[in-house]
């Protein structure tokens, strides 16, 4: 049928029908190889070439118009950068805190919102809503809310007699405050992943367990928790990568301050760009690439292995 009609009502005067029969496919695909060319050109010129070029420029002192080859000097310089050590520890703290909280809260909310509660659909969208808001918008809003004297948070705390801290101005707290906002914004995505994971667990297990007299806690501990492992590994990977390369929220809220106390690798790199040290910041990006790869590849391998073992 499909080979004999062209989609038009068959009319007596349609001789091209026979000439359409020979198809152009030679090696099983109807498309010639050069159809890949546009995509290849775009990918090559926008992703591959810049990546290779950036490896070169990380070895130079570069001001856009001229560059001077200085070997590994940029990398040494970057490791001498006092803010960098702080930035590294902060990045790790930030990534671990945010992904840890997203797992715990995301799973809790996931269990809650996968169960039969009233207003479930509404609550699901409420939890997911922050994910849709612009990160910079969230950052600016929370900066206002967290203002030590005029912010809503501390004014509310004052009503109940608590003197609120300087959320973003106390060097001890600034990074954690930003991390909390990151969790608020990102937990919706983790929840959705968990809901999907929990819903896909066959109900027979829970029914059988219930018949055998397992308490809700035992059901969660022995069925939901292990069987939602794929969801956990996805959430951990995503939020850890997100945490390691986090920049926008931190920049919108503290710009790495006060001083350098909430600087992360990405904000240190950005500041080098801003100051016009293009070679140095490119070296920083190469380092960030290596660090993220070094952490994430073994982690995903390990998580995947664990998943298979299940």
């Amino acid at each position: 049928m499909a080979s004999t009609t062209t989609g038009l009502p068959p009319t007596p005067a349609s001789p091209p029908q026979t000439s359409r029969a020979p198809r152009r496919s030679r090696k099983g695909t109807p498309y010639p190889g050069w159809f890949y060319l546009p995509a290849a050109v775009v990918y090559l010129s926008i992703f591959i070439v810049p990546t290779i070029v950036s490896f070169y420029f990380s070895l130079t002192r570069w001001n856009f118009s001229s560059s001077e080859f200085i070997g590994l000097e940029n990398f040494f310089q970057f490791f001498r950068e006092p803010a960098l050590v702080k930035g590294f520890t902060n990045t790790i703290i930030y990534a671990v805190v945010t992904s840890g909280l997203k797992v715990v809260l995301g799973m809790g909310l996931g269990v809650l919102l996968a169960s039969q509660i009233t207003g479930r659909a509404y609550l699901r969208s409420v939890v997911f809503f922050p994910v849709l808001v612009s990160t910079v918008g969230v950052g600016i809003t929370f900066t206002a809310l967290m203002n030590p004297s005029r912010g809503l948070i501390n004014q509310v705390l004052e009503l109940v007699g608590i003197a609120g801290p300087g959320w973003l101005t106390d060097p001890q707290l600034a990074l954690l405050s930003v991390a909390l906002v990151d969790v608020w914004k990102g937990v919706g995505l983790a929840t959705v992943i968990y809901i999907a994971g929990i819903v896909s667990i066959p109900p027979e297990y829970t029914e059988a367990a219930a018949v055998d007299g397992a308490s809700p806690w035992q059901q969660f501990r022995s069925i939901t928790l292990p069987l939602s492992w794929p969801a956990t590994s996805t959430v951990v990977t995503l939020s850890l990568i997100g945490g390691l390369r986090s920049f926008d929220l931190i920049w919108a809220m503290t710009r790495g301050g006060p001083g350098f106390t909430s600087d992360v690798i990405a904000s240190v790199i950005y500041k080098q760009y801003q100051a016009g040290f293009y070679g140095l910041s490119t070296a920083g990006n190469v380092l960030l690439f290596i660090v993220v790869t070094a952490i994430v590849i073994p982690l995903t391998r390990w998580l995947a292995k664990k998943e298979v073992a299940m």
Binding site: I46, F47, P50, T51, V53, S54, F64, I241, R245, Y278, T282, N285, L288, F289, V292, T293, V296
Partner: peptide
């Protein structure tokens, strides 16, 4: 991790 790398290089290229 790839996307982070790419985004930064794209920024440099855009500049």
């Amino acid at each position: 991790m790839h996307s982070s790398r790419k985004r930064k290089t794209t920024t440099a290229v855009a500049a």
